[in-house]
Design a protein around this nucleic acid. Structure first.
Lengths: 233, 233
DNA sequence: GCGTGTGAATTAATTCACAGCC
DNA sequence: GGCTGTGAATTAATTCACACGC
């Protein structure tokens, strides 16, 4: 279930504050969900709570960590060292959670060889070897959009089955390969949509009275926009 | 509906290639969804397709853009100019979609004053004034986790009702304020979960036979991890 | 004939509400 | 008395499948 990481974070915060035990109501509030939902989610892991008391914070942290596979190390490779790749390479939050940046790669020979976050950026040519030698299990794609599918194909061919994609493209992958995407502009567009709704409701009734214009009058499109690389820092 | 931006991107790609018309089947494939779902989604916008033919690409681009509110400009402020804020400031994909980076802000006086992506970073003290003067409608929070809620509160007090949060925290906001979050480590944890499932299935039967250890034996926790700022580029 | 638009059917997710246990 | 765990009820999302228009 995709909410376990959220619970884990809330629990870790409680753990740090030394809170020994927590009720579903409290934990749900901290994670921003309904308490019934939280209890149902946790019940899939097993009966780790105590009726009349709540959940033991430390124990639950362990159980969720184990369920999520965070008790082992996950070597991660970042492909595409532009703005975003650079930022992620320096991201301090990996190590504390079992994720270790094992390699940085870039197709540009001017970038390969540079030292970033204490690591030397490798060239794409070495991808297959790096994946094999360092047992990389998760690939993070931070290339421009047009390069993403090609990189993805190579990652899959090299045996990687989990990909985190920051490029604004829908990646095609074979069965058995998991892809998650993080897409800035989609998030902004969703916010814009709601924002527009709010101001529309303030002013007029239901929908803005914009009459459909003659076909062929395209407004600003969404070109897909090629990620950070566009203007390297 | 949260899938409209996805359709818009696929349509824009088609538009660039000069494709005049597209069927629900084709567009659905390009966006990575089921064709019935796509038709149902689009039908909420109105009847913009032609039976037996499909959808006019340009016209549909316009309609979705309008629905998403992309026919107007959305000034965005980025708060917290660490690694990630820096990367986003340089992100070229904003402008082409109606999103304009109107201001960069940071609480550190050493950072304020710096020029980044052609803009001078302003100090947090000026937040309220900037929001007012530049009519900022969307705030992007890229501060460390502990600072996020405070920044959020100030944004809300300044009148902002749409927030994109990159800090690993659940933000508390009043009714009417929209928050979307982008969370690196949650995505990675979800991937790790699936990855673990795969290798577990390869080896044993259903679940790994790890017996519940004595309570109090916490594994690696999730500290929340404070975002990019941790190690500035 | 082809492909949209949509009611109906199915499936999944969420919430309610309460029995059972501490 | 308080709080978990969970069947039942509700609500939402997805998919099916086909009538209708081009």
């Amino acid at each position: 279930m995709a909410r376990l990481p959220l619970y884990l974070r809330a629990l870790s915060a409680l753990s740090e504050r030394g809170v020994p035990t927590v009720s579903s109501e409290e934990l749900a509030a901290a994670a921003g969900v309904n308490s019934a939902k939280l209890r149902k989610d946790l019940s899939y892991l097993g009966s780790y709570g105590t009726r009349g008391v709540g959940y033991d914070v430390e124990y639950l942290v362990y159980q969720i960590s184990r369920e999520l596979g965070l008790t082992q190390d996950w070597p991660v490779a970042i492909i595409g060292i532009g703005n975003l790749g650079h930022a992620l390479a320096n991201y301090g939050g990996f190590a504390s959670r079992g994720f270790r940046v094992a390699a940085l790669l870039d197709a540009d020979r001017a970038v390969a060889g540079q030292r970033i976050a204490g690591m030397v950026v490798r060239h794409m040519d070495d991808l297959e070897q790096i994946v094999r030698d360092d047992r990389v299990s998760i690939g993070v794609i931070t290339t421009p959009a047009p390069a993403a599918q090609g990189v993805c194909d190579r990652l899959v061919a090299a045996g990687i089955t989990s990909i985190l994609n920051f490029a604004p493209t829908v990646l095609a992958v074979p069965e058995g390969v998991d892809v998650r995407k993080v897409d800035l502009s989609i998030e902004l567009q969703i916010l814009a949509f709601h924002e527009q709704r709010k101001s529309a409701t303030d002013a007029g009734p239901t929908l803005p009275p914009t009459a459909p214009p003659p076909a062929g009058t395209a407004a600003r499109g969404d070109r897909g926009g090629d990620l950070p690389e566009v203007m390297p820092a």
